[in-house]
Design a protein around this nucleic acid. Structure first.
Lengths: 259, 259
DNA sequence: GACAAGATATCATAATATGATATTCTTTAT
DNA sequence: ATAAAGAATATCATATTATGATATCTTGTC
């Protein structure tokens, strides 16, 4: 293997992880050959690795079709993650409170490279399926939560990421003009919160407030999604923003640097 | 390694997984030596495996303390799981609806060996932190959801698991008498739903309805947790049970079974 | 400033993963 | 019903890769 022929690097383990990560939104179960094709791994290697993952309980195997699927162990890992992330414990009571008060969908997001990732979600009302799932990643520049986090950074750093970080066009109305995004971030920097419209889903408005660490930089955000039909600027301003800001503030206390 | 000296078993991968699974509720971050101690693996092996997991993005490493922690990738795996489990997609709208209607905490659970596992959770009101987290596992016999699932099985099978499956005493009032549990299951079999009290948390009542597959056996359950103070038998009977049963029924249609 | 504990790096060795091949099973087509 | 194709499973000789003992470097403590 030419991968990383470092003596501190175990190739077989890396390959095994590759199998796990081969599953996604659309690829939800795979035969042995599917797996081999998708990962580009040798057929025999795939066989051995998949079998190992199965024996170890990381992959379920349909006795009929012999196809592999993610196992419950994947959820158990998430469970362990939640305990390891102090923010989650800190935020959960506030999020529940906020969710009940607003009656709208409330999310907790963190920055994950140039993406945001949903760490906790409290759906209210009808939602897109994907909008109810923890672990989803979105380009930070696309999302209100991402923009408001970036807005807490020094100006030059903001500019750099606005230029270089990825954007994905989810709807016909998704902002792809980086200048417009920059303006949105500037505005967020002044107001202390960010709003977006039609970015992920048409007629959906997102409002996000930053959770700011001791160094003044946001490392997370509280975000709320509402229907643009029912929520005009004014109503958002009065009935949403104050509470979201409150919640974000309440979550962000003296917690130590969470990187 | 004496583990499983099968030629279809890749030991290094299994060891790597062991590192991942070493993290839990109480063990949320570990140094290299912690990891080695906890997994029983050789110091050098731990070094290599942990390094590999870090390079592959499965473990974060604090640059200061050099300690390892679960990474966001753990949540991404959960995200992939959710897509792979048809029940989740099927259930989510019903659960949200139920959550709003009842204003109480609503859970979706599946059977995982002799445990139940929370696959989706919609917390409402103040909750124990652990009661808000997906991926948590509980002995099936302890939980209303587990009992109601078992109640859909043939009598002899029920008896077998009531005798053999594990029980954990969470509170001083947790039922540890298997005969009492058996009665609870019998009752659930007749009524079509199960209720429990003080099993996981004192003064907490659980109500669960089975999601029944084409073969007549439950493979999942809708569960609801309420405060015993505010919810007496009558109120539960009238305001909770019918809706939970409805939801469970709505989730369980012709779903899988291609025939 | 010395010590201890832990993290990181190195290296010779053999044990383990490798992948080609063979066999069995399943499905589809004729 | 039979053949053919595709996939899963099993086997095995080989050397590549993981191993773990040891050494060095780093950090924190008394």
């Amino acid at each position: 293997m030419k991968e990383k022929q470092n003596t501190l690097f175990v190739g077989s383990l890396a390959k095994g992880l590759k199998l796990l990560r081969a599953f996604d939104e659309t690829t939800t179960e795979m035969s042995l050959t599917d797996l081999a094709r998708r990962t580009g791994l040798d057929k025999s290697a795939t066989q051995r690795l998949a079998n190992t993952l199965h024996v170890e309980g990381m992959l379920d195997k349909d006795p009929e079709t012999k196809r592999f699927r993610p196992s419950h162990a994947w959820l158990e890992l998430a469970y362990a993650y939640f305990w390891s992330d102090p923010l989650v414990r800190q935020a959960m009571p506030q999020l529940i409170d906020l969710s009940q008060r607003l009656g709208s969908t409330v999310n907790l997001t963190e920055l994950s490279g140039d993406h945001i990732i949903y760490v906790s979600r409290l759906p209210n009302g009808i939602s897109q399926f994907s909008a109810t799932l923890v672990g989803r990643r979105l380009p930070a520049l696309n999302a209100s939560a991402g923009r408001v986090m970036i807005s807490t950074w020094p100006a030059e750093e903001r500019d750099r990421v606005v230029e270089s970080w990825p954007i994905h066009q989810f709807t016909p109305k998704t902002t792809i003009d980086r200048n417009v995004i920059r303006e949105g971030i500037e505005e967020a920097a002044q107001k202390g919160y960010a709003t977006t419209q039609n970015q992920m889903i048409l007629n959906q408005t997102g409002v996000a407030a930053p959770i700011i660490g001791p160094d003044g930089r946001a490392y997370a955000a509280v975000q709320c999604s509402v229907s643009s039909h029912h929520w005009g600027q004014d109503r958002i301003q009065e009935e949403l923003v104050p509470y979201i800001l409150d919640a974000a503030l309440a979550i962000a206390p003296q917690s130590r640097g969470v990187y």
